[in-house]
């Protein structure tokens, strides 16, 4: 298709404008995080602020909690979703349609409708302020999505490959883990990446469930931290940088999966 030079230049100008707008707040935080914190400090990049936030701001501890929560949520939801998706995608059993649609409805239930009741019920059995209370509700929400996602993959997987595996004497369990899961790496990676991002960024569930400081996840720790500091201080921005860093790094390396997950998952 041929278009004029000016139109092409105009298109680039618009792209640059939008990219700049998307980047500006991120770069603002980054530059504030690396700016001199104390009066009398000289110019240059102050990476020491990140270290200060890590220790003084206790972000090291918040990040550790977040990492544990993320590993548990991603691991459990992936396992449960792959198993359920396998059953819904390749087996026929009574009630499969109804059960699947009920789980699908679960994707729509906002966390707001769950946390209040969940908090008081878990409190009465002494489970608030535990990893269980922070992890399991997120596993449930992720499994609702993951089951939907994996079912779509298993339905599209080749029948011939499964038959071949069976003729080689592989049982249903081995067929799943030795044949279908390795073949489905792209789909599974996309699911893992999305669940990781949702879990790392989750705010409401840990806010309600973690009542003591040692169970605060990174975003939660950051929110409490900013309550004590005015906006624009280097230490606060350094904390924000640390909290955003893991997701942004994963995004930069696996951006195809993030974008594909959104586009395919939504339109499929």
């Amino acid at each position: 298709m041929t278009i004029s030079r000016t139109e092409r230049l105009f298109s680039y100008a618009i792209l640059v404008l939008f990219a700049a707008a998307a980047l500006y707040p991120v770069l603002l935080i980054l530059s504030t995080a690396l700016s001199p914190d104390r009066i009398g400090d000289t110019g240059g990049l102050h990476f020491g602020n990140l270290a200060d936030a890590w220790t003084q701001g206790r972000f090291g501890s918040y990040m550790r909690t977040s990492a544990i929560v993320a590993v548990l949520v991603v691991g459990l939801s992936a396992l449960f979703s792959i198993m359920a998706g396998y059953a819904f995608g390749t087996m026929r059993f009574r009630g499969s349609e109804v059960i699947f649609y009920v789980i699908l409805l679960g994707i729509m239930v906002p966390a707001e409708a769950l946390v209040v009741a969940l908090y008081f019920d878990l409190r009465s059995v002494g489970l608030t302020n535990t990893l269980v209370a922070i992890v399991m509700p997120q596993v449930a929400q992720s499994v609702a999505f993951g089951t939907f996602w994996m079912r779509a993959y298993f339905r599209s997987s080749s029948r011939e490959v499964v038959e071949a595996a069976r003729l080689d004497g592989a049982g249903h369990w081995r067929t799943l883990w030795r044949v279908l899961v390795p073949m489905g790496r792209p789909a599974i990676t996309t699911m893992l990446v999305l669940i990781f991002m949702w879990t790392w960024n989750e705010f409401l569930i840990p806010l309600v469930m973690a009542t003591s400081e040692n169970l605060r996840t990174a975003p939660l720790g950051l929110a409490f931290f900013q309550g004590q500091y005015t906006a624009g201080t280097a230490l606060l921005a350094a904390g924000a940088t640390l909290v955003a860093l893991p997701v942004v790094i994963v995004y930069l390396f696996l951006q195809r999966h993030f974008i594909r997950g959104m586009v395919e998952g939504a339109v499929k």
Binding site: S81, F88, T90, I103, L114, D121, V143, V162
Partner: peptide, 28 residues
């Protein structure tokens, strides 16, 4: 083969169903 009617499927969906009922259905 997968695709045949089987009770086994219930075992595969059990963990997912359990967390779903406990942490979405019941709280709702």
């Amino acid at each position: 083969p997968p695709g045949e009617p089987r009770k086994l499927a219930y075992l595969y969906i059990l963990p997912a169903l359990l967390v779903f009922v406990l942490f979405i259905g019941w709280p709702l």
